[in-house]
Write a protein that binds this DNA or RNA. Structure first.
Lengths: 192, 192
DNA sequence: CGAGGTTGTTATCGAATGATTACTAGGTCT
DNA sequence: AGACCTAGTAATCATTCGATAACAACCTCG
C-alpha cells in the first residue's frame, strides 16, 4: 500500500482510538493494531505519538470546518439547525466528536494546546466571518456544541433510558436524533 | 501534621496539578512535590493515582454543588446569573475549573468515568430539582458552563487581547469578569 | 522506660511504552 | 542482473512512573 494511503488509514484508526481512550490513555501500539500495522511503523510514519495526535486533531477540525461549509448554503432562519446537524453528522466517523471533545482539555500541552486552540479558533472564525453569526449567536451555538462534546466525553449515552439525567440531557441535546447518536457513540464500557 | 489535614492538603495540590496538566499528563511525583511531600506517601495515602484522581474530582463536584446551593436563594429573575457567578467564583481555588473540564472527557475510563458522570448528574439534578430550571433552561445553563470549561481547558485566556477569537469568546463568556478570570487561570505556557 | 501507633522518607522494583536499530521483501529503473 | 527505493517487521532499548518494601523519627500511654 502507498504511504499516503497508509497514513490516512492510520489517521482514521487513530481518530477512533484517541477518541475512545484520550491522548494519554492511548498507546501507539493500540493505534497500530487498530490500523493493522506494526507499532514501530506508525511511529516512523509520524515521528512521535505527539505528532500523530496533532495530525489527527488537525484533520478532525478540518473535517468539521468542511462539514460546516457544506451545510452553510440555505435560508438564514435555520442556519443553526443545519450546522448543528452537520456537527452531529460527523459521528459517522468513529471517534471524531469524542476526539474533539478531548482536545479541548489539552490546552496545557505546549504544541498540542496550540493546535487545539487554532482548530477551535478556525471554527469560531467560520461562524463569525463566513456564517455571519453575531458574537452572541456564536456563543450560543458553540455553547450547545460544547455541551454535546461533554455528553460525548462523559459517555452519557450509555445511561440513556436507565438514568434520569442522562436521558434528559440527551433528549435536550438531540431532540430528534437520540437514537442515531446512541448508535454511533462508544459506550462507557466499550472495549477496544 | 494529622493525616486528615495532609490528605486535604494533597487534594488541594492535586486539584491544581491535575487541572493544569490533565489526568494522564500528571505524575504522582508532581502532586507530591506540589504538596511538599514524598511521592510514595501520596500513593500510600490514596492507594493509587486513579483513586487519588477520583477523590479529587468528587471533591471538586461537591464544591461546585455547595457553591450553587449557597448562591441559589434570591429572586428567580437572575437565578442564572447568580449560579453562573458562583461557578466562575470557583476559579479562586486553583485548578478547580480546568479539572472539571478535564473530567468531562474521561467517560471512557471505567471507574473515573462513572464518578465523572455521577458528578455531572448531581449538578444537573440540582438545577432541575432544587433550582427549578426547566429542561430547556438547564440545557442553556449547562451549555454556557461547558463553553466556559472549553475556554478554560483550551487555555484561551493566554491569547486574550492578542488573538481575535480568544478575545471575542472570553468577552462573551465573562461579560464583566474577564480580568478576574484571566488573573486566576493558568496560562498555556505556565510551567509547573 | 518501652511498646505500639502515626507520620513520613529513601531506595528500589517492575511493568508499560515510546522510540530506535537492524533487517527483509518486493518493486522499479538502467 | 543488480543497485536502489519504498513499505514494512521483529527485536530491543531506555525511560518514565506508579507502586512497594524497609526503615526512621516522633508521640503517647501504661
Amino acid at each position: 500500500m502507498s504511504a499516503v494511503d497508509r497514513r490516512e488509514q492510520i489517521l482514521v484508526a487513530a481518530t477512533a482510538v484517541f477518541g475512545a481512550k484520550t491522548y494519554v490513555g492511548t498507546t501507539t501500539d493500540e493505534v497500530a493494531r487498530a490500523a493493522g500495522v506494526s507499532q514501530p511503523y506508525v511511529v516512523r510514519l509520524f515521528g512521535t505519538k505527539e505528532k500523530l495526535y496533532i495530525e489527527v486533531i488537525q484533520r478532525a477540525y478540518a473535517h468539521v470546518l468542511e462539514a460546516f461549509r457544506t451545510a452553510l448554503p440555505g435560508p438564514v432562519e435555520n442556519r443553526g439547525e443545519r450546522l448543528g446537524a452537520a456537527y452531529t453528522g460527523l459521528l459517522v466517523e468513529r471517534g471524531m466528536l469524542p476526539l474533539i471533545a478531548g482536545s479541548t482539555s489539552m490546552g496545557g500541552e505546549a504544541e498540542i494546546g496550540r493546535v487545539a486552540r487554532d482548530g477551535f479558533s478556525s471554527l469560531w472564525r467560520f461562524a463569525r466571518d463566513e456564517a455571519g453569526f453575531t458574537a452572541d449567536e456564536a456563543r450560543t451555538f458553540f455553547a450547545i456544541g460544547m455541551l454535546i462534546n461533554t455528553v460525548v466525553g462523559l459517555r452519557l449515552t450509555g445511561d440513556y433510558g436507565s438514568e434520569v439525567t442522562a436521558t434528559e440531557v440527551l433528549d435536550e441535546c438531540f431532540p430528534d436524533a437520540v437514537e442515531k447518536v446512541r448508535a454511533l457513540l462508544p459506550r462507557a464500557d466499550e472495549p477496544w
